[in-house]
């Protein structure tokens, strides 16, 4: 699987996320309060809203439309109305850049 250069580590504030588009795919890239980086698919599984406008609280991301929550480390749906888990992607950091392994 190819590793795709998504962004610089300092493009994302701690406890925040950004949107990253690659080809026809859209991703959400997260910077956790502990300084770790994570990536999930970019659209909420409830109604295809971009998560990049949502709120990161600890290890949760909240969808901006209906306030559904996911654990972005595992993709697990944590709060209705989301019921379907988010797909997650492996991430590595090299030379101050964040790479996502795109399936």
């Amino acid at each position: 699987m190819p590793w795709i250069d998504a962004c610089a580590t300092d493009d994302i504030e701690e406890e925040d996320l950004i949107r990253f588009d690659h080809g026809s795919q859209t991703f959400a890239v997260y910077h956790s309060p502990e300084g770790e980086f994570y990536a999930t698919e970019g659209l909420c599984t409830h109604e295809n809203v971009h998560l990049c406008d949502g709120l990161v609280m600890g290890h949760l991301v909240e969808c901006p439309k209906h306030n559904g929550q996911f654990d972005y480390r595992t993709g697990e749906a944590m709060r209705p109305p989301v019921c379907v888990n988010l797909k997650t992607f492996p991430v590595k950091v090299e030379g101050g850049r964040v790479f996502i392994e795109v399936a």
Binding site: H46, E47, K65, H66, P80, P81
Partner: peptide, 10 residues
């Protein structure tokens, strides 16, 4: 009503 309100917002 949790679900009806989600629809109300969508």
């Amino acid at each position: 009503w949790r679900w009806s309100h989600a629809r109300h917002h969508s």
